[in-house]
Nucleic acid binder design. Structure first.
Length: 882
RNA sequence: GGGAGCAUAGCUCAGUUGGUUUAGAGCAUCUGCCUUACAAGCAGAGGGUCGGCGGUUCGACUCCGUCUGCUCCCACCA
């Protein structure tokens, strides 16, 4: 069977993924083994795979596959998030393209469209994850709007409401007067906009509604809101306005008397230092209003037009009103001046309308107690953040957390289970029937159809914070006293959560709160925070910029294994990754390297002949090196240094296995290999594939299946990971010295233009392990190796120093004596400098007195080694000058 | 404006409580090779006063201060 020279992932990836699925290797059920659990951060149900998902899910898959191979009962629960805002926006846009406005539809009709959309597009992303090799337990796939998960959300709301943690309150929202909805902060785009700064004269009154003839100057960009003013505010330490303290002013045009108040929110040197306070139409003014108990006068309706509370210009659009009122003020002589001004104005992402800050009734969840508890888990490392630098950020947020606004003016999501009686009273129950029962307690005559459910839905995070619980047992949220089912009892708390730092607060902290409330236990032990995937220029990858490669295309071109390796090799925890296609190219090249090593090994003819010395040595060395490296890999994993672990295996395979081991045991062209070496090599290859499997699942399965005869139903996925057995450090060191000597000889050949085919002799002086001669002979093409005690008789050649061992290569007539002397002299100079610096250190009594003995000892060794080297070099010069 | 983080080779990053580091790796670069596994390869080589300044210490890439530059989070100025 002739194997192609290049590895073709398209021939293996789908094949093995189906095989894994067919045999249900990803599926987990509780048993007596130790569980290892990850719940996927559920991607938006209608989303498509982007590079961030690729990184995030590759990491999860590596951890899960490794855990499985360590004998744990690994369970990776997949699923999707209904993502109310994003999904609703997509559905609205789709309907619009068909000429349908959301406002033309009833809630039920709209939801029908939304579900249709979800069924059509939902799950695409999960299919894409399969291409990546994700070993999720697909039988457990969940959606945050599955009936039982939605019920869990409702029950949770009821639970917190009944425990007094959920309340209804007024809050300033970003109102879109065209879309007629509140939009979240994330959907507001701030743009620098040209506007005007109007300086207005407010008459000072005598307190009885009479003007005193004096004025105070106020600068504003929104003169149309003056009718909603509740006060004028000055800074308490602003000397210019001391005389105004306690006085009152009249609102121009409507002549309403309002107080002058003091608040250090005001910036003395901004504008006139005198601020009109309009609690209904500015978030900051609203807060000042709260502090000073000011009335809220709302003069703008939902369409952005002035209402009758404005008294004047009623029914006018806010921008028309602005122009008209300026004119009116000017006519009254109350407009002092108009300045051009640039300011950040918020626009609706969807309608591009100027956002109007508007007060509205919203539902809130009290955060103080929950945040304190959630902070505790992280503070004492019950939940570990990786890297731990995020602890600071986390603490800061938890200490300043304000109450969570959980209501959204949307339809796609879990509708708030608050039911209003005709008299405005409210009951909160987990179903209409329950609500009806409760309502009858208040009013026995009430009919079920009299109840009106709150129109709003809950924030998406209010459902996803239950995720680690509800994917296993959705009856527990809202009912902490119930006994968890078998799954939840077994898999919870989960082990690792892999997510992005930007949702540390939105999601991670809140899962901890929900876990504490309903399970009295953390939801996960470790939180591994990945960075943002950026392009080469450091820009965040985004659709708008078009700088994100299509992950599916990338996998087609480089193979899923190649992409996985490419992403992992450069991604440390918490750091952004600057993605460049050259990285996945490296991954693809590595796949090819593995493929070709396999081609070489399986192409050998095996014969019952004697094992060569160098093969025996190479096998011994590699097994030692392998054991040592496994220990390093395990250590990296324990510390979540995934890219380090990945690089370690990469080098083990490419450098140690391919460049050294295989070259050392490789029989001459056409010659067979002895059975002993062959078997040892297959065993080593088998171990390497297992070590590589978590990173590169497809190629490793393909090669493992073919390395030896396998039964149907066997898989590398479920093999035990090789252990870190003991190893002989001294032997590894001896081999390393030999490697360095070989490199030096090869470099010598290159500099002297000696072909690798021309064999050389070698004399060695120093601590060289003669067992390793055969390796030297084979890999440096040496005809004879002789260990001698004195090199002074050998003159016509070159001495190479590795550590303190000297390797003499006879090079009759090829040595330029003067050049070599000059080189040796330069070397001596270098070592003398070094010697002096070490010597200075050792002559420092305070160093010798204070430094640990081991450090001093080391310095002494450095000194004596340098001494030896200098002496050797001096001998070299002596020989050369003979 | 408040808070946090980062700065080490051309690029991406290690450097694990200050002393086996005369600062490492991968990629890229350069030189020589189509050597019968692999040119998606082989062999070899070069490249950094660890952002600047100051301090602590016998000893600083590592600790402290400060400056400069970048990033993120939060709040956004009437």
């Amino acid at each position: 069977m002739e194997l192609p020279i290049k590895y073709d992932p398209s021939l293996t990836e789908d094949k093995w993924y189906s095989y894994w699925l067919k045999h249900k290797f990803f599926h987990s059920e509780p048993d007596e083994r130790e569980p290892y659990t990850i719940v996927i951060p559920p991607p938006n149900v209608t989303g498509v795979l982007h590079m961030g998902h690729m990184l995030n899910n590759t990491i999860q898959d590596v951890l899960v596959r490794r855990a499985r191979m360590l004998g744990k009962n690994a369970c990776w629960v997949p699923g999707t998030d209904h993502a109310s805002i994003a999904t609703e926006a997509k559905v609205v846009a789709k309907l619009k393209s068909e000429g349908i406005e959301k406002s033309d539809l009833t809630r039920e009709q709209f939801l029908e469209h939304a579900w249709e959309w979800r069924h059509k597009h939902g799950g695409i992303i999960l299919e894409q994850l399969k291409k990546l090799g994700a070993s999720c337990d697909w039988d457990r796939t969940k959606f945050t709007m599955d009936p039982e998960l939605s019920q869990a959300v409702i029950d949770t709301f009821v639970y917190f409401y009944k425990h007094g943690l959920i309340y209804r309150g007024v809050r300033m929202v970003n109102w879109d007067p065209e879309g007629l909805t509140a939009v979240s902060d994330e959907e507001v785009i701030h743009k620098e906009t040209d506007s005007k700064f109007y300086h207005l004269k407010y008459p000072i009154s005598d307190g009885n509604g009479n003007k005193t003839g004096e004025y105070v100057i106020i600068a504003t960009t929104r003169p149309e809101t003056i009718m909603a003013d509740a006060a004028v505010c000055i800074h308490p330490e602003d000397e210019r306005y001391f005389h105004l303290k306690g006085k009152k002013v009249m609102i121009p045009l409507i002549n309403k008397e309002i107080p002058i108040i003091e608040d250090d929110y005001v910036t003395i040197d901004f504008g006139t230092g005198c601020l009109k306070v309009t609690p209904a139409h500015d978030i900051n003014d609203y807060e000042i209003g709260l502090r000073h108990n000011l009335p809220v006068i709302d003069i703008i309706d939902q369409h952005g037009k002035l209402n009758d509370k404005a008294q004047i210009l009623v029914g006018e659009d806010r921008f028309v009103a602005r122009k008209k009122i300026v004119k009116m003020l000017e006519e009254e002589g109350l407009l002092l001046k108009v300045e051009d001004y640039k300011s950040q104005v918020g626009y609706s992402e969807r309608t591009n309308a100027v956002i109007e800050p508007r007060l509205s009734l919203q539902w809130f969840l009290k955060m103080d107690v929950l945040a304190k508890k959630a902070l505790h888990y992280v503070e004492n490392d019950d939940v570990k953040l990786i890297p731990d630098k995020f602890k600071n950020t986390y603490r800061h947020w938890m200490e300043t957390a304000h109450d969570w606004c959980i209501s959204r003016q949307l339809w796609w999501g879990q509708q708030i289970p608050a039911y209003y009686l005709p008299d405005g009273k409210v009951v909160v129950e987990s179903s209409l029937e329950e609500a009806y029962k409760a309502a009858k307690e208040i009013n026995p005559d009430i009919k079920i159809e009299d109840l009106r459910q709150d129109e709003d839905v809950l924030d998406t995070w209010f459902s996803s914070w239950l995720w680690p619980i509800s994917v296993f047992d959705a009856t527990i949220p809202g009912h902490p006293d119930k006994t968890p089912n078998k799954d939840l009892a077994y898999y919870y708390p989960t082990n690792d959560l892999i997510t992005a730092p930007e949702i540390l607060f939105f999601w991670v902290a809140r899962m901890i709160m929900a876990g504490d409330t309903f399970m009295n236990e953390k939801p996960f032990r470790n939180v591994y925070l990945t960075g943002i995937v950026r392009d080469k220029l450091g820009r965040k990858m985004s659709k708008q910029l078009g700088n994100s490669p299509d992950p599916i295309k990338l996998m087609q071109e480089y193979g899923a294994d190649g992409v996985r390796l490419g992403m992992l090799i450069c991604s440390s925890a918490g750091n952004d990754i600057l993605f460049d296609e050259s990285q996945v190219e490296q991954g693809r090249n590595f796949s090819n390297k593995i493929w070709n090593a396999y081609r070489l090994v399986t192409g050998w003819q095996v014969a019952d002949i004697e094992q060569s010395k160098e093969a025996a040595i190479a096998i011994e060395w590699f097994n030692n090196k392998l054991n040592k490296t496994i220990a390093v890999i395990n250590d990296h994993f324990d510390k979540f240094r995934l890219s380090d672990s990945c690089m370690t295996i990469y080098k083990l395979f490419w450098d140690d296995f391919c460049a050294w081991y295989l070259e050392a045991i490789k029989p001459a062209y056409g010659a067979p290999i002895d059975r002993k070496s062959y078997d040892a090599t297959i065993e080593i290859f088998d171990k390497l594939l297992k070590l590589l499997h978590p990173y590169m699942p497809f190629i490793t399965e393909e090669l493992w299946q073919n390395l030896q005869a396998r039964e149907d139903g066997e898989t590398i996925m479920l093999q035990m990971m090789p252990n870190a057995a003991e190893y002989d450090e001294k032997f590894i060191e001896d081999f390393e010295l030999t490697q360095q000597a070989i490199v030096a000889i090869r470099a010598l050949r290159q500099s002297k233009n000696i072909s690798p085919k021309e064999s050389l002799e070698l004399k060695i002086k120093g601590a060289f392990n003669p067992e390793l001669s055969s390796i030297l002979e084979k890999l440096a093409n040496i005809s004879s190796v002789e260990v001698v005690s004195d090199l002074s008789q050998f003159t016509d050649g070159q001495i190479l120093m590795v550590g303190t061992v000297e390797f003499f290569v006879p090079l009759a007539g090829m040595i330029n004596v003067e050049e070599e002397i000059a080189k040796a002299k330069a070397e001596i100079e270098r070592y003398k400098k070094f010697y002096n610096s070490v010597n200075a250190k050792l002559s420092n009594e305070r160093f010798v007195a204070n430094a640990p003995a081991a450090v001093v000892e080391l310095e002494r060794k450095k000194l004596s080694d340098a001494q030896t080297k200098i002496e050797n070099l001096e001998k070299v010069i002596e020989n050369l000058t003979k």
